[in-house]
Structure formats: structure tokens, C-alpha cells
């Protein structure tokens, strides 16, 4: 009997090793280890053997069964591996084809993207964001901002009027007054928004966007203004920028300064014959107007806690279009308002 078991083993081992696929292997499993196969039958018939043969036969048959099971499992793994290999080879694709389905991506408009970028810088510096009406009273737009009655900005040539007392705001500054009326100091605010002036040429559109800044507290200084704008300039235009303050005049700040940022173009990279598009080779480019809030402005809101003898502050205003155009090299303001999709897709 043990002889027969050894023969079965040899026969099965040879067949299993030679099996060419999972299906054939399954047939072999059924032939040698299945319910009707010879080896299991031998094991089932152990009890009919003479007692002295039972031990050795059972032991040998079990060993063979285990060996064959192991062999089948091993061979099955081999075969599966090979078949997977083949499958993977058949699955090869051209990975340079585009993704499917394509996931469409829109863009924020450059003005929105720039506005948010600037907002985020000032949020980080502790400023909040306020907004105000675009159709504004002459009182908030000019009077309370200390514009002399003859200030040319009031002219109908320069400002859109809705009535004698109502204009399209010419700057975001009216919100300085509204914000101070609404909240006592300290106040750290920026005010983004759309503004309007009667201008239409290569460098002016009748509608544009500004961001106003206002910081009012007991001890705000012009040096604080410089530091704040330096932080801003570096965040927007690069960490090695410098700012330059040039004295100027604005009705609602005193002292007033215009602020230049050091040019951010690589000046050695273009031929010397070509002027720098950003700074015209001066090394500086004007980005905004600012100054210390004029005491007269505070006197308009003194009853809300703004005593010009006790509090002081700075204010600034910048054009979002200008910042966006400088930063991204947009040559013509009107491109921003054409909304050509080939323009829109480049930013945001």
C-alpha cells in the first residue's frame, strides 16, 4: 500500500509541476485530492486494514496529502502570478493621453485674486475688512475728508454726480469716516472696493478698484505706517523689497506721503538698451498714497471717541489694478475689463 502511495505522490508531483494554468491545476487537485480520488479513499479505508498496517499507511497517506496540498498552493500562486503578469502587460496604456473625464478649472479674475492676496496680508497684520456704499454722499466722499470746497476732485469734470449731494465714490476713503462713526478706537481696517472717476484713457478707466487702510490708536506713528507698508510690499512684491516715502499732499492726511517700492524686476537680465518696464530704470515704482490722518478728519468724528488731541492714526489707499498690472506685467488697464477668456485663464 505504501508503495502505491509513493507512486501516487510521484505521479501527482510531476503533474502539478507541469500544470500550465489555474484550470488544469484545479483538475489535478480534484483528481488527486478530490472526494473520489484514490488518496482520500485510502485514508477513508484505513480502518479496514490490518491493525499493524494502519499506522504506517495512514501516516504516509497524510504526509502525501499535506505535501500535495502544499505543492498545489505553491503552484497555484506561481500560476496566478504569471497570469497577473500577462494581464498587466495587456493593460498597458499611453499615459501621456489626457485625464478622463477632464476636470474643468475656472479662474478668479486677476482683480479678485490680487484683492484677496492684499487682504490676506493685512489680515495677517491684524486688520479687518470693511466695505461701504459705492454710491456715496458728498459729505462722506469730500466734506468729512477735509476737501476744500474748491478742491478740483469735486469738479463735475472729474467726479460722477447722481445729485448735487450724491456721487459715485471717487475713492474708498469715505469708509474711514463711516467706520469711525460705527466703532471707537482702536481701529485697524482695510476697505476694498470699486471706485469711479471721470477718466478714460490708456492708464485710466472710469471704474477701478482701491484698497484703503486705516489704523487709529493712541500712539500710531508715521514710522508705523512705514513699517506696515514695508511688510505689505515685501509680502506682495518679494522679501527683499524696500519702500521709500516721498512727501506729498492729500487733503485728509497730514503729513502725506507717496510710497514707492524698490523695483522687483531683475535689472541685469535685460539688455541695458531696454528700459525697465516697471521702474523706467529709476529703481523705484510708486504704489500708493498715504499719511497720518488729518486732525480735521478726526474732528468730524470727535463725538464717536476720536479726539484729535488723544488719538492719531495712519491711512493709505492703493489701486488694485496698478498692483496687479505691476506684479504680472499687464500692459494695458483695459485688458482687465475686456474679460477675454484667454486673459482670464492666465491668472487667479
Amino acid at each position: 500500500m505504501t508503495q502505491r502511495i509513493a507512486e501516487l505522490r510521484a505521479e501527482a508531483e510531476a503533474a502539478i509541476s507541469a500544470a500550465a494554468g489555474s484550470a488544469e491545476l484545479e483538475q489535478l487537485r480534484v483528481r488527486y485530492l478530490g472526494r473520489k480520488a484514490e488518496l482520500p479513499n485510502i485514508l477513508r479505508a484505513i480502518a479496514t486494514l490490518p491493525p499493524e498496517e494502519r499506522g504506517p499507511t495512514g501516516k504516509a497517506a497524510n504526509q502525501v496529502r499535506q505535501a500535495l496540498e502544499g505543492l498545489i498552493a505553491q503552484r497555484s500562486e506561481q500560476l496566478a502570478g504569471g497570469e497577473l503578469e500577462q494581464q498587466l502587460r495587456r493593460d498597458v496604456v499611453d499615459v501621456t493621453l489626457p485625464g478622463a473625464p477632464p476636470q474643468p478649472l475656472g479662474r478668479l479674475h486677476l482683480l479678485t485674486a490680487t484683492r484677496r492676496e492684499i487682504e490676506d496680508v493685512f489680515l495677517g497684520l491684524g486688520f479687518r475688512i470693511a466695505e461701504g456704499p459705492e454710491v456715496e454722499t458728498v459729505y462722506y466722499n469730500f466734506d468729512a475728508l477735509n476737501h476744500a470746497p474748491t478742491h478740483p476732485a469735486r469738479d463735475r469734470q472729474d467726479t460722477f454726480y447722481v445729485t448735487d449731494d450724491v456721487v459715485l465714490r471717487t475713492h474708498t476713503s469715505p469708509m474711514q469716516i463711516r467706520a469711525m462713526e460705527a466703532q471707537p478706537p482702536p481701529l485697524y481696517l482695510i476697505i476694498p472696493g470699486r471706485v469711479y472717476r471721470r477718466d478714460n484713457d490708456a492708464t485710466h478707466t472710469p471704474q477701478f478698484h482701491q484698497i484703503e487702510g486705516l489704523a487709529v490708536d493712541e500712539d500710531i506713528t508715521l514710522a508705523d505706517l512705514k513699517g506696515t507698508l514695508l511688510a505689505f510690499a515685501r509680502a506682495i512684491f518679494g522679501s527683499d523689497r524696500e519702500v521709500r516715502l516721498r512727501p506729498h499732499f492729500f487733503p485728509f492726511t497730514e503729513p502725506s506721503v507717496e510710497v514707492d517700492v524698490s523695483c522687483f524686476m531683475a535689472h541685469d537680465s535685460h539688455p541695458p538698451a531696454q528700459r525697465c518696464r516697471v521702474c523706467k530704470d529709476t529703481g523705484w515704482v510708486e504704489i500708493l498714497g498715504s499719511g497720518m490722518v488729518d486732525p480735521n478728519v478726526f474732528s468730524y468724528v470727535a463725538e464717536y471717541g476720536y479726539d484729535p488731541e488723544k488719538i492719531q492714526g495712519f491711512a493709505f489707499g492703493m489701486g488694485i489694478e496698478r498692483i496687479a498690472m505691476l506684479k504680472h506685467g499687464v500692459p494695458d488697464l483695459r485688458l482687465l475689463y475686456d474679460n477675454d477668456v484667454r486673459f482670464l485663464e492666465q491668472f487667479g
Binding site: 493685512f122 514710522a223 511688510a231 516721498r246
Partner: peptide, 27 residues
């Protein structure tokens, strides 16, 4: 303002930040 502009608001001015006193920037 007259003093500031002639003294040199640019060259002479340090760059500092406001003390803020708890002002928190948040949308």
C-alpha cells in the same frame, strides 16, 4: 508735516509696526 518732509521722512524714519493691542485680523 513741514518738519517731517524736510527732515527726511524716508531716510530718517525707522520702520516699526503698530502695537495693535489685541486687534485681530479676521474675515
Amino acid at each position: 508735516e513741514e518738519v517731517a518732509r524736510l527732515h527726511g521722512v524716508n531716510d530718517q524714519l525707522p520702520t516699526t509696526l503698530p502695537r495693535r493691542r489685541g486687534a485681530v485680523g479676521v474675515l
